[in-house]
Design a protein around this nucleic acid. Sequence first.
DNA 1: TTAATAGTGTCTCTGAGACACTATGTG
DNA 2: CACATAGTGTCTCAGAGACACTATTAA
Lengths: 253, 253
Amino acid sequence: MVRNRPRPATPDPAEQAFLDAYDPDAFERPSVAVDLAILTASGLGLEVALVRRAEHPHRGRWALPGGFVGIDESLDRAAARVLRAKAGLRNVYLEQLYSFGAPGRDPRTRVISVAYYALVDPVQLAHHAGGQLQFGRIHVPWEGETGGPVEVRGAKGEALRLAFDHADILGMAVKRIRGKLDYTPIGFQLLPHAFTLRRLQDVHETILGHPLNKDSFRRRMLASGQLEATGERESQVGHRPAELYRFAKRSAI
Amino acid sequence: MVRNRPRPATPDPAEQAFLDAYDPDAFERPSVAVDLAILTASGLGLEVALVRRAEHPHRGRWALPGGFVGIDESLDRAAARVLRAKAGLRNVYLEQLYSFGAPGRDPRTRVISVAYYALVDPVQLAHHAGGQLQFGRIHVPWEGETGGPVEVRGAKGEALRLAFDHADILGMAVKRIRGKLDYTPIGFQLLPHAFTLRRLQDVHETILGHPLNKDSFRRRMLASGQLEATGERESQVGHRPAELYRFAKRSAI
DNA sequence: TTAATAGTGTCTCTGAGACACTATGTG
DNA sequence: CACATAGTGTCTCAGAGACACTATTAA
């Protein structure tokens, strides 16, 4: 890869001087990382995968899985690589969220982080119980799409202290998926292959943070054309079993 | 600023080895830039500010104004600085859009670009006519929020060849503002202080790429509470003059 | 049989589209 | 005056909420 920018003479010395001032090699370069908000929806609510930091800074705090971007690696590939390396996941919904670049966000050095979020069904993450990845429940202290940092709580309801600006990243992720939920089939990504309409509604309510009208939700989802009846029903539920549906076209990256 | 990461001994050598592999200093670092899609809405449609590249690569092509991010400068500040330096603008709507990081997007060296978009009313940009900044009309070859690169045309309708991946950046900007238009008062940012409802509808139609129902648009806008009647009317229009409105709370960054 | 939730049918209310009509400038 | 667009009133239609009612399983 060519690292040094060719500098042909230009007729305009002012323009030349201006461009010289913006030569990339004249700048100290930041590190660029990806951080991943790996989200899932258990019966308990919206959960996120976290790793406990073993080192300073923020030793003992909880952080989103992340990694640095290779010099010949695209941002999307870096995110997919981290997802595979840290959570063993591939072919799940993965989308770039926002870039965080406050100078002091990492006290060691300048790190610009391109945040991604992944939506995964809980079954695919079950084998991580007790492993490197821990799951925290997301608690959103604001309404609607106001935005702002969120809180994360552990299995016993205790608050988990998040490292760096990861509470802001998670807040942005919640805001994004709340917005997307209205017009895209994003909820399916958080459920197993087959699911009942009630479970899908649970996911939507979990993400949005408020209850939805059952009748209207059913109608809207069935009318959307995104659901396919499997012909099977749930069982062992202590009441009339619901029809199981699948997402008509499960998209993945 | 601390550039070298402290490496305290940890009890877990495997973890230590793992983290060593991700030491930022072990990686060649990319350059990080901001690129700005400065958008305005003239009577001709949605327009974008471009600079003609005086150098290789892509010499003679048209590019979005941009600049490298300083090592102690946040992304937002870098974007605001470029906006001020290249377009003389401050206090306009400016929002981060997306980060573009394909390894080959700049043939000189690895440059990751954090794209921003700004919405500016045409009056503030009028003095740029004939200067460094040229304006091109955006033509969107896709419907709704499909997404994809857009085309840009010059004053005589000729196609302008864009540099790097800037057609993709502009496509993403159009997609974003189309989505935002439905639920945020984003259209005001593209108009002068006082404007008629018809002009606001023109802006919405320009952005969305399709005509809107006049009655419904009026009702929706007036019901939104975001408009304030100025009490004045337009004049010299050859028909009944329309009431002039202003945005109730003109937000800016 | 009872408890509990799935699923259907229908009424109402609200907002968007359609359209007819009136209002008020310029030429 | 004619013309063009601003602005109002009202009808209809589609989707969401509300609610009553029936269906089907486990215990």
